[in-house]
């Protein structure tokens, strides 16, 4: 109890003292079940502002569920999640605030197929943040430039390649000016030749200091940008540490087994 209260208060204090040390996401003793299936077991994870965390683990280990709990796409049943000082609970105002802080990129892109690339990027800023159309479009074009697809703005998502679509999805999320970005296996649905263009975009985002939590098995990416790698199995965080430590000196059999499988695939 005491500990929980401390954690909730902590971000606010930290923020006033030194912004770089602020905690962006605080996950404390989170448990979640689907029926009888215990998918998250006492998960603790604090992510500092500006930190890049890569989450890896075997399929079905609860990685997606964990990051989807952060923006309440899934509801957790026990424990606390605090995003930038805002508690993720049943309070609608809190949830709305959290959704504005957190951007998300999905494995299957989830672009709006009936809207052009530009409209995909301007819709939410105009509707949610009340940005004027001209400003929203200027900003969208700037982000599309950043993900290196400025000349596709008036096409429909269906006319783009998978890699281009995923970069539009990243631009769309960035247009909401989130403080934290979640990535759920952003390259898993892509043909191999398109993986790099998406990873390059993510690397450049990381270089700019975005707080990122990425579920991915791209070890090269993890080595290049991650401050921390978290290995999950059966709903638990099994190991975490620097990429060199986690990939180089795995301590548990489960991680060794997993690394063996991933390396064999790549």
């Amino acid at each position: 109890m005491n500990q929980e209260e401390l954690k909730v208060v902590e971000p606010a204090i930290a923020e006033t003292n030194s912004p770089t040390q602020a905690i962006a996401v605080s996950i404390q003793k989170v448990n979640k079940w689907y029926g009888n299936l215990h998918v998250l077991r006492d998960v603790d994870l604090d992510v500092a502002a500006g930190e890049r965390v890569v989450v890896c683990g075997p399929s079905g280990s609860g990685k997606s569920t964990l990051i989807r709990c952060i923006n309440n796409l899934e509801e957790h049943q026990q424990g606390t999640i605090v995003v930038d000082g805002i508690q993720v609970d049943h309070n609608i105002a809190h949830l709305d605030a959290v959704r504005r802080e957190v951007g998300m990129v999905f494995q299957s892109f989830n672009l709006f197929p009936h809207l052009t690339v530009l409209e995909n990027c301007t819709l939410a800023p105009m509707l949610v943040r009340g940005v004027a159309r001209a400003d929203a479009e200027a900003q969208a074009r700037a982000y599309l430039e950043r993900v290196r697809i400025p000349d596709q703005a008036n096409k429909f998502p269906g006319q783009l390649s998978g890699g281009q679509q995923q970069r539009v999805a990243i631009a769309r999320a960035l247009c909401m000016k989130p403080k934290i970005m979640l990535f759920d296996e952003p390259t898993s649905a892509l043909d191999p030749e398109m993986v790099k263009e998406v990873l390059d975009t993510m690397v450049s985002l990381a270089r700019d200091g975005m707080t990122m939590i990425c579920v991915t098995h791209e070890m090269g990416f993890a080595r290049e940008v991650a401050d921390r790698v978290v290995f999950m199995d059966h709903g638990q965080i099994v190991e975490s540490g620097s990429p060199q430590a986690v990939f180089g000196q795995p301590k548990t059999d489960r991680l060794k087994l997993f690394l063996g499988q991933v390396l064999r695939q790549h």
Partner: peptide, 11 residues
């Protein structure tokens, strides 16, 4: 996924 994308964008 369409609902989820709209939700995370804050709509």
């Amino acid at each position: 996924g369409q609902y989820e994308a709209a939700y995370v964008l804050g709509l």
